[in-house]
């Protein structure tokens, strides 16, 4: 399906963005085979795959997911740093509530074997930083660069703007041919080296 450009007046009649619960009346402009069934459908969509949830579970913060979807996300983060994809509240597999509808067998989806999936290719060390959801706020910048190990929450404010570590890594010969920083490199050491580099850049 080729999607054509659709020009949308940005100023015309108070657009939907202010009222997410508004009943949608316009059919999708594309030749989609999925008719819009309105709000009820949307409220019960999985927050990850955006489909109707398969083995639904709900987090303590009230967000709905398919268990396989949430499981895949949790697997990407070390235990203790796992957060709700929607609101970034702490979340863990023992604290989600499976939902059982009338015809469900009442089997806890967490006990089912989740089909094996490829693991994440990138390892992120993300401390519990503040979260700005652009869906609800206009702002989108974190005030800190967040480095450091899981749980460490090593925050650092840098005054000279962005300092892409890739570049430093490249200078120090830590990158492979594809320009990737090796994931196993301990970030604290890396940070130390980066700081030395920054001082070197400033003073020499």
């Amino acid at each position: 399906m080729v999607l054509e450009s659709v020009n949308l007046p940005s100023t015309s009649k108070d657009n939907s963005s202010t009222d997410p619960d508004r009943k949608k009346t316009d059919p999708p402009a594309s030749g989609s085979d999925q008719p819009d069934k309105g709000d009820v459908e949307n409220v019960f969509e999985c927050n990850i795959c955006l489909g109707s949830p398969n083995d639904p579970v709900i987090s303590l913060c009230g967000h709905l997911f398919c268990w396989p979807c949430l499981h895949e996300w949790l697997e990407m983060k070390p235990v203790g740093t796992q957060t709700c994809p929607v609101c970034k509240a702490a979340i863990d597999r023992e604290k989600v509530i499976p939902l059982f509808g009338r015809n469900s067998k009442g089997e806890d989806p967490r006990n089912k074997a989740v089909p094996p999936r490829p693991h994440a290719h990138r390892t992120e060390h993300t401390g519990p930083g503040p979260y700005h959801n652009p869906l609800f706020e206009g702002a989108n910048f974190l005030p800190f660069g967040t480095l450091g190990g899981p749980g460490g929450g090593f925050h650092m404010t840098i005054g000279i703007g962005a300092s892409p570590f890739h570049a430093l890594g490249a200078m120090l010969g830590f990158t492979n041919f594809a320009g990737q920083v090796p994931p196993g490199l301990p970030s604290q050491i890396f940070l130390g080296i980066a700081m030395m580099m920054i001082f070197w850049l400033i003073f020499f």
């Binding site: 990138r122 702002a139 910048f141 974190l142 005030p143 800190f144 660069g145 967040t146 480095l147 650092m156 404010t157 840098i158 005054g159 000279i160 703007g161 962005a162 300092s163 892409p164 570590f165 890739h166 570049a167 890594g169 490249a170 200078m171 594809a178 320009g179 990737q180 920083v181």
Partner: peptide, 28 residues
């Protein structure tokens, strides 16, 4: 442009996801 623009574009990969970003501390 960001202060380190020239330095960055000389060394960056095509894919921005290969960069270890440190996010700006200002709120432009």
């Amino acid at each position: 442009r960001p202060p380190d623009d020239q330095f960055y574009i000389r060394t960056a990969s095509m894919n921005p996801k290969a960069t270890r970003w440190m996010y700006h501390d200002d709120n432009v």
